[in-house]
Design a binder for these strands. Sequence first.
DNA 1: CACCAAATTGACCAAGTGGTCAATGAAAAT
DNA 2: ATTTTCATTGACCACTTGGTCAATTTGGTG
Lengths: 213, 213
Amino acid sequence: MYENFENLNEDKKKKILDACILEFADKGYDKASTNAITKEAGISKGILFHYFKNKKALFYYVLDYCMQSMTEEFIKYPLTETKDIFQRFSELGVIKLKIAQEYPYIVKLFMEALASPPEEMRSDIEKKYLKASKEYIPTFFKDIDYSKFRGGVEPSKAIEVITLFIGALGEKYLKDYKGKEHELFQDYDKIMAEYMGYMEILKYGMYSLDSTN
Amino acid sequence: MYENFENLNEDKKKKILDACILEFADKGYDKASTNAITKEAGISKGILFHYFKNKKALFYYVLDYCMQSMTEEFIKYPLTETKDIFQRFSELGVIKLKIAQEYPYIVKLFMEALASPPEEMRSDIEKKYLKASKEYIPTFFKDIDYSKFRGGVEPSKAIEVITLFIGALGEKYLKDYKGKEHELFQDYDKIMAEYMGYMEILKYGMYSLDSTN
DNA sequence: CACCAAATTGACCAAGTGGTCAATGAAAAT
DNA sequence: ATTTTCATTGACCACTTGGTCAATTTGGTG
């Protein structure tokens, strides 16, 4: 499909991919300009559309590439042996943060892609994303001790609640600190305290009494 | 500032505003076309930019108009006398749903505006939105009995947790049912059961034992 | 060298954008 | 009836977009 592009030498491929990632991450699919990409990558318009038949195909290619880099990165990090689900979520959070620091543009590309894609592409993008997460989520939670939960709280529900909540919390912080990301580090202790407080509530809500340590 | 527009007769004003709301709600600020608006409203390009100095000013005007319609609508609905915060949140949810059914485009305009505005306008938009909610939120929760909470759970934190969680849950359902909104009604009972289950967890998490009815 | 095929260029295209402005229409003031 | 004022029009502008294609460069083969 893309052999013209993939037969290129690594340096050139990387330069083009980097230009794409930068542009798509910065502007999102719609506002990203293929002109800007070719300029940044130092190639002509014609050759870009020779490699990829159109903007959409290019975007999907770049997205897949990022998805793979990302998952490869993720499995590099070892997990502890904890059986506590809240502990595990904290670990995953730390890993996420580290990756976001190391590959900010790739992470931003995902966020842009998931946040405001053209309507017709939304389900494709979500499918890719879901497939990747469905593949890895179970491995993260397979050693968890679910017997701590009180009756009526199923493990899958518990994971969903915590995931939803942490996701919402993350988005909230992202919004609050948009444009002043440096303050995030300053306020780190405050944020962590808040986070622990929230997790405390969820623990009380889901664990049976004797498990609430 | 906008007296040229505001001196128009109500019919014409409404037709223009409706065209704007439709277009901005449908496409979001960036993709919304002033050409499409003038066409839909049956006016010329020149006169639109005579009323409003540019697209941005037009959008802010429309947004303010929607914000006001919305709050006026909101205070029309009476609240019960409950002192239970979960009960109150359910009420607010029902009101939100009713308004969303009655004014779908206005609601969608807000969502589009908050979800993916041009970077430079984001903080303005959020400021408008925050101002409006800051004004009304306290009135919704002033009669709540916060003594049910166990020690360590401050009322403001509790409200934030529930708001965040319900917000995330709502978004999740929106995504899950995107493009097949009709199934929402079919699955209503299932969704409500899920919702109650989640609220149960939060209740356990925030109330002291003797209050968990 | 000539020849060919593939890689690469960039001028070009149609379509769309937000915004302008001379020209026109209509109504109000003289 | 004439002049003045203001509302309104739509052709037009400069610019950007994704995408095309004839023309050129490049590199390998006989």
